[in-house]
Amino acid sequence: MAEASQAQWEPKIIGFLCNWCSYAGADLCGVSRYQYPTNVRAVRVMCSTRISPHLVLDILKAGADGVLLGGCHIGDCHYISGNYYTEKRVRLMKRLLEESGVEPERLRLEWVSASEGEKFSKIVTDFTEQVRKLGPSKVKKDEKLRSRVAAADDASETFRLKALVGRELNLVNKGNVYNNKLDPAELDRIIDSATEEEFERSLILELSMSKPRSVKELGEIMEVPTDKVLRHIVALRQKNMIAMEHPEGFTPTYKTIVIGGEQ
């Protein structure tokens, strides 16, 4: 039975393609009649730089089995520097997917020029196979995973990560203006540790949304040492994002503060 449904299952892949190169490359692929599997559904955007981590993570949260991002080759972006940012953001997305437990291989970034029709067909064929091997997305069935992906999504929207990734290029390239050029590797390290922190904090908020939870409970669900959880909670309380609720006996519990109607 399980096998049968496995056989019937076809990966659902969303493609975000930039208008000027990758979408045009897909067009040329069609014009040249290179064949590829039918699994990708393409959404056209003006530039790959439009694709924020939120768009990708939200789609994965909604159950997509894979996401394919297409842009112009580095240096060819119609908007000069758009795809440099795409590259940086994809790195962040992959880190967040790792944190959340979704295989980062479900996300793929490819540069396809408007003349690389055949390359486009190869990429789709290859990526479809890759996603097929990974199997159906577990997000829909696995509630725990879903909340982790939601946390990754939230983390990607935090001021710290967005500002860091947004400024990354300038910090590395134009450093000389401020006279302190940052070493890219060093900056990656800073971003990675910020990613981990923001993910864990978002996860705490996510988990404590529906019901108050204790530090110990959070630590167990998240598989994170309790002292670290506590440090996050202190930080979140300072930002007024989480509240301590009815300390029952000696174990305080925490509940996410929800503002307005959103989330």
């Binding site: 045009a24 060819d76 020029s113 003349s115 690389e116």
Partner: peptide, 16 residues
């Protein structure tokens, strides 16, 4: 042309 020097931009893509 296939690509163009010195950027190796795809020729028809930028011309079309």
């Amino acid at each position: 042309l296939d690509k163009t020097f010195p950027t190796n931009d795809c020729s028809i893509c930028i011309l079309a």
